[in-house]
């Protein structure tokens, strides 16, 4: 039940920064894929240069994929964070 996390009659700041699980998974997913992507760009240049369709190579595909991941995960995070805030609100009220 969500009630066991509640500290009734306190403001959000009073309990300090609360653990933000949707934010953590958003940060992890995007951070890790970016790190891997950056690493590939540094050490696996030939891999990224393999042509996929005409002049488009794997590197371009990877960049577009990373951008799309950011868009999709941002939408997910926004919805999840809104749900989490709605769950906290009833317990914060007197």
């Amino acid at each position: 039940m969500a009630h066991q996390h509640a500290h009734p009659h306190t403001s959000p700041f009073h309990q300090g920064p609360r653990p933000h699980r949707p934010g953590r998974s958003f940060a992890l997913v995007n951070g890790l894929t970016f790190a891997v992507h950056l690493l590939l760009a540094c050490v696996a240049e030939d891999l990224l240069a393999t042509r996929v369709a005409g002049q488009i190579n794997l590197g371009v595909v990877a960049i577009l994929a990373q951008g799309s991941l950011m868009l999709w995960s941002a939408a997910r995070y926004d919805r999840a964070a809104a749900h989490e805030e709605a769950a906290y609100e009833p317990e914060g009220e007197h």
Partner: peptide, 23 residues
């Protein structure tokens, strides 16, 4: 390609802003 990567990073920086925006 390096320019493409920089453009990508410009967009990704908004992800950092998204994390900071609520707090």
């Amino acid at each position: 390609f390096d320019g493409l990567f920089i453009a990508l990073c410009t967009v990704l920086s908004l992800g950092v802003l998204l994390l900071l925006s609520g707090p």
